[in-house]
Design a binder for these strands. Sequence first.
DNA 1: ATAATAGTGTCTTTCAGACATTATGAT
DNA 2: ATCATAATGTCTGAAAGACACTATTAT
Lengths: 242, 242
Amino acid sequence: MVNKIFQAEPNSFIQDVDWVLYSVDPVIFTFYRDELCVLLIKRSSPPYKGLWSLPGGRVDKKACANLEQALLAKLKSKTGIENIFFEQLATYGGSDMDPRGWSVATAYLALVHESELDINRLESEEPIRWWRLSEIGGDKPLAFWHEKMIRDAFVRLRDKSLYTDLPVNFMPNTFTYPMLKQAFEKILGTSISRQSFARRMDAAGIFEDTGERETGRNRPSPVYRRIHRGGSYVFPGIIKPK
Amino acid sequence: MVNKIFQAEPNSFIQDVDWVLYSVDPVIFTFYRDELCVLLIKRSSPPYKGLWSLPGGRVDKKACANLEQALLAKLKSKTGIENIFFEQLATYGGSDMDPRGWSVATAYLALVHESELDINRLESEEPIRWWRLSEIGGDKPLAFWHEKMIRDAFVRLRDKSLYTDLPVNFMPNTFTYPMLKQAFEKILGTSISRQSFARRMDAAGIFEDTGERETGRNRPSPVYRRIHRGGSYVFPGIIKPK
DNA sequence: ATAATAGTGTCTTTCAGACATTATGAT
DNA sequence: ATCATAATGTCTGAAAGACACTATTAT
């Protein structure tokens, strides 16, 4: 039980005025039906009841020792996801973000393959679903500052996709270069030549050929796997925007 | 006055358990006596009384509407600085950061020319001074997680100095290429050829020749000025580490 | 055989690093 | 005149973009 004013050490006072409301808010992107999508939950209680929002919220201070644990717990409870790539994006806050008081929220950029989340099998109290990024930001407002967080997350994703392998976190365990290339192209909004792309990926030395081949109508593509899960590769040059 | 449990909107309850302690902590770097330095204040009250710390702290919720205002207010009150470049670095938090309770802190990376801060003229209650970066992280612990924040801030500064003009924020209004080159070199820990450096800066088109010339013992260097204050330039290529 | 897609090789462009040569100002 | 440093020009190397040509699989 927290007292309004208490003394943790001699001469060390804390007052009500020193506390803020705090949330962690993951911006979870995936490619769903070949479109870049973000996961949103419809709020069932005030404030912003009925509006769509990021699957985040308050931290369980007893259960979580730090921010990373708080985020993982939130992902587990709201989406069921346990294995996911994420990185801290930015922290937002002020008097106008939450009508309940001066509040602070840390947004995380998270990337998954859609198979990691079976929305239909998820027993959620609130409606939850993927929204195409193009659907965000029109006349349908989101709760809190979540729309800005999603915009900022996309900018981070797009900028880092020019010089890192960030989009491989959208791939399943094994994948082909055409699949990965398409992810880069959708994120960057440009087309990339097949040859340049393969050369860039081969030179990175971060993928290994599984020996398998795609099955399809045409010449099959080799199936690759990441050599090291986790971590991030920085390419020596950037993709040049046209 | 904040109640322990109150109802801001129907069915919207907030409990003590939802609050955290919150601080903003600027990592202020400068070149002082040709060395990269960070500004620290000696704490005069618990916790961590007597340890050196970043010039940050709790947010005055009444006076500050958002995080940026909170940071600017903190910079003004602790250091007197009003004009400074800064960007948000990262947010840290957990149960072990502050003995007074579960707390969250947002660190900012801030860069200034040393002339912006006259420490001697500053009437501060606590001792305040520049510390060489090489002095941080030995047997002298810092308060809270400030040592990690400083490390992370330096990594951000070093990484971004490879492909942006971030170090120009260390310069006074007018400066020479040799001055700026030295800043890049100290940050990156490498030497840069004078010719490559000048070509890179000229091509960026972000500086203008003031027409003035340095006075010194040798052939004088042109004195430049940033064309646009604020903003950040991203070079087309990166400085190649040797 | 044809269509569709993948792989290989080569040329061009961009930009950083290195170095030689020339220029300028203080002493 | 000498020294220290700045400016200019040229060559090299790394890596991306573009394109022609060849290879492979399904139909």
